[in-house]
Amino acid sequence: MRIGVVTFPGSLDDHDAARAVRVAGGDPVVLWHADADVRGVDAVVLPGGFSYGDYLRAGAIAGMAPVMSAVVDAARGGMPVLGICNGFQVLCEAHLLPGAMLRNEHLRFVCRDQRLRVENAATSWTSAYGQGQEIVVPLKNIDGCYVADERTLDELEAEGRVAFRYVGENPNGSLRDIAGITNARGNVVGLMPHPEHAVDALTGPTTDGLGFFTSVLEGMAHA
């Protein structure tokens, strides 16, 4: 199974994302922001970092990068796409997911091991988890405050599209403690915390993040 990892100028976590794919048993494929297509991959990860320096708004310029037209088309066709941190911001800016990210409510950069609850274990990227399972993965960002209007938030809740919620103290002011969401079809998932940094006991706080990558590989094996 070939999983593309997009590198934008300013991406930081593309190598860790590729490594997580490998640890889970998949073949990572390097994709470049200026590519016109996604090289026939089976899924795409948009990694964390500060694409294009996060100039204008976090993820705004990356959301309109050449490769994103291909990613948006493929995602609308059902291909699994995971956006982590900056990648989540890119998915929002590219209108694959609703809402937007603001500066953290307390204006400080947060870097800590974060407890999350899996609120939807039926997406392409969460099927390896149990519904309601709690996991701990790193969180590190300054623009992590998820916002959307009340109607959108109610819709997300009603349709089970809140994929992850922060457990304990809300780290950034995100509305309704939302850490990650999914689209209606469940193939596109975005979250602020970093599962790709929690796939190896040597370097991560846990290996709880591995399930994202085994979920999508397992799903494709049965497709």
Binding site: A60, M64, V147
Partner: peptide
């Protein structure tokens, strides 16, 4: 409306 601003916020 497409790039300079994000109509969500």
């Amino acid at each position: 409306s497409t790039l300079l601003s994000n109509p969500v916020i």
